[in-house]
Design a protein around this nucleic acid. Structure first.
Lengths: 218, 218
DNA sequence: GGCTGTGAACGGCTTCACAGCG
DNA sequence: CGCTGTGAAGCCGTTCACAGCC
């Protein structure tokens, strides 16, 4: 996997979707898949799929297609989920617990790492079978376990402090659900506020006489 | 609000973020704000903000800036959240309940509409004070209450059927958290799979020697 | 003079068209 | 001949630069 030039974010966001289809193909016993077949499954154009994959190397065989198993492994490698990295979770509320369940099923290729909560009642207890640590332990625990990924599902006022602690602990990428803009030059932050998503959705739900846009997001 | 040409999806996704800052400004008693000030608050460039707003009309005063209250109201109008539209929720699990709490705080400008669940144990019970109806009632209930917005937080196998029922009920826009691609020519669908998001995050969490990309998403 | 609104330039992602192998 | 890999063209959103008002 040669780190070629800078990869478009749009490409990265599609890789997990290709992976999802490949897993399904593997389950049904398919050995080989063409970009055209993947296109029908994923609803992206075949050219786009080929170009996305080509950023990372030549995985296919001309005249044949792509080996389902090999391509699946390659995408996992590219995404960095081959070794099931740990994800730290800060905020053991509803949303945090939902994420925790997703992860514990192992489907995503990520493992549940340390779980934190600022609430003293929750901290030192357990949620879904995972021990919950106090937020004050974030930095030290991340350093100790060498955790690079984290999700923040705390209320807005707590997000900033939690983020600083994660950064101090050496986190590299953060998925932030709190409605505040978090930034740091050394850390990739994906801000994903559900209230914001719902408000944008409302726009598209309005009845407009001009042609209805078909939805194609993520 | 003249429906000009087609608005970029990126613009729509930024409006709720402008709105968030405007609400904060209104809270602190600010009357007027310039695109430059909004830029510092929201981390988008001032030109981008001006251009985004200009798609919908001329809200500002040259030499002065934008009226905080007026702009706030205008954005709500544009997004279609002035009249607090109802959002139907299908799937009263962890994620669904998290959404329900967000909404019940009224911050988003959306109201909790009918809540459904396929699980007979949950259906006809209540979650967070809202009555849960069986999934079989989706179409009829949406028609009756004229609901245009919906969120799907059910397991993958159930998503397709749920979506069909929503479409039959006249839904216009759907936020889908299930890991399946839902599409319909008349309905705007935003597919937002958390597992997928986490996998993309993992990519950016990998240690790479080339310059670390700063994160700017949503 | 300050700040908005906007055509023009720019850049990056997508689509096209085809060259290159199996 | 089929399907991948890729330069070129096209498209769309962002940035630039400035004209237009207050």
């Amino acid at each position: 996997m040669k780190t070629t030039r800078r990869i478009p974010a749009a490409t990265i966001s599609r890789l997990p979707l290709y992976l999802r289809e490949l897993e399904e193909l593997a389950r049904t016993g398919e050995d080989v898949v063409s970009s055209r077949e993947l296109s029908e499954l994923s609803q992206f154009t075949s050219e786009q799929i080929r170009k996305d994959l080509a950023y990372f190397g030549a995985f296919g065989r001309r005249g044949i297609g792509y080996s389902v198993r090999h391509l699946e492994a390659s995408i996992r490698q590219i995404l960095g989920i081959s070794e099931q990295p740990e994800l730290a979770l800060v905020g053991a509320g509803r949303l945090g617990t939902a994420l925790l369940r997703y992860l514990s099923r192992r489907h995503a290729g990520l493992t549940v790492g340390p779980v934190f909560d600022s609430d003293a009642n929750k901290a030192m207890g357990s949620v879904e079978g995972y021990t919950v640590l106090p937020a004050s332990a974030i930095t030290k625990e991340l350093q100790r376990r060498q955790v690079r990924l984290a999700a923040i599902t705390v209320p807005a006022p707590a997000a900033e402090a939690v983020f600083s602690a994660l950064v101090a602990g050496g986190v590299r990428a953060v998925l932030n659900f709190a409605p505040v803009k978090l930034r740091h030059p050394d850390v990739f932050v994906h801000n994903l506020d559900l209230a914001t998503e719902l408000q944008a959705l409302a726009y598209y739900g309005q009845l407009r006489e001009d042609k209805a846009d078909e939805g194609t997001h993520a």
